[in-house]
Nucleic acid binder design. Structure first.
Lengths: 187, 187
DNA sequence: GTCTATATAATGATAGAC
DNA sequence: GTCTATCATTATATAGAC
């Protein structure tokens, strides 16, 4: 396995900082400090701030697909796989309370900035949507599959947004349970 | 009725721009240009950028309360009032597709900035939550009222976030209908 | 209340030595 | 690949004339 290059450390740091502080609010100086390199060195690896954003989104796409693939192999039944998706809300609840959903908050920010990377960022959502849709198809709900996928994706986004605003742990548990109950009628 | 003062025009512009472009991304110069005043004049009315944010949040609190009061007087039954809330998703669908929910996107941004106005901004959410909770109480669901209020608030947030990312009009209609159906069991 | 001019700090980005 | 030094631009904010 190859040694981790400086470039990877930059993407590591940017990925986290963009999530915790937002894309625009995170300056290159701050990233460089975090990685303990100079700004000049930073520009050797990425020729603009938008280029790291591209790299971060690309990494998130890879990681998301890897997670979906893992769920695909782990859970035996489609409805159990969907539960894996819902349960991220519980697993990541501390981060979500602090920073919201990494996908939803990024797409919202880029929409306001009218940023050219909007489309790529939205692709992360599409990965989830298409994967969820596929599960519903396998459950026999071919016609409604896309709408059901969007529904569950929306529910999880709402939970993340309010958990972030209200810092409410019980709300997350309640909602996750409600989504599980909702899911039963399609299992 | 008093003449509209420059101060009001500044808050008008800031309110819209913070919604459309985000708080941090909206510079004072841009606001000043929009209102057609100088930056110096701007600082005569607001001594810092955070002070306009305060004013904008305050105005949104006032406007939100006024809207809730209006619904309280218009709709005869509590479940019809709740429907008024849900229907904002349809009424404002064009803006929501472009910029998301003004409340959710602001609280998310301020959370990432760790901004001191977070608490005040979240109060807008609380107005909705408490109002919705009151409606469910009047429908006889005293015990669950808060949880039901948070549920419906979360659903609407999820719809706004995904409508913004996917630019999907049909999704909004579908989800609004689903929320109406869900509401029936509590009516 | 409104303006012009300016101060100050930070940002994204580049040049060039090592 | 990494650094220091620097640039141009923009941001928030202030001073002071009218």
């Amino acid at each position: 396995m190859a040694k981790k290059a400086t470039r990877d450390f930059i993407v590591d740091a940017a990925d986290q900082l963009f999530y915790q502080q937002g894309f625009e609010h995170t300056s290159l100086s701050y990233i460089a400090d975090e990685v303990k390199i100079s700004k000049g060195n930073f520009y050797h690896h990425f020729k603009s701030k938008d280029k790291i954003l591209d790299a971060v989104i690309h990494r998130r796409l890879i990681n998301t697909q890897a997670m979906l693939d893992k769920w695909q192999n782990e859970g035996k039944k489609p409805d159990e796989r969907i539960k894996s998706f819902i349960n991220i809300l519980l697993i990541n609840q501390n981060k979500i309370k602090k920073f919201g959903c990494p996908v939803g908050t990024l797409t919202s920010e880029l929409a306001k900035l009218n940023h050219s990377a909007q489309k790529e960022a939205n692709e992360i959502f599409s990965l989830f949507k298409n994967w969820l849709s596929e599960q519903f198809k396998q459950l026999g709900h071919t016609e409604q599959a896309d709408a059901l996928a969007m529904h569950i994706l929306g529910r999880s986004q709402g939970v993340a947004t309010l958990a972030n605003a209200f810092q409410d742990q019980e709300f997350i548990s309640n909602e996750v349970e409600k989504i599980h109950e909702w899911l039963m009628q399609y299992s």
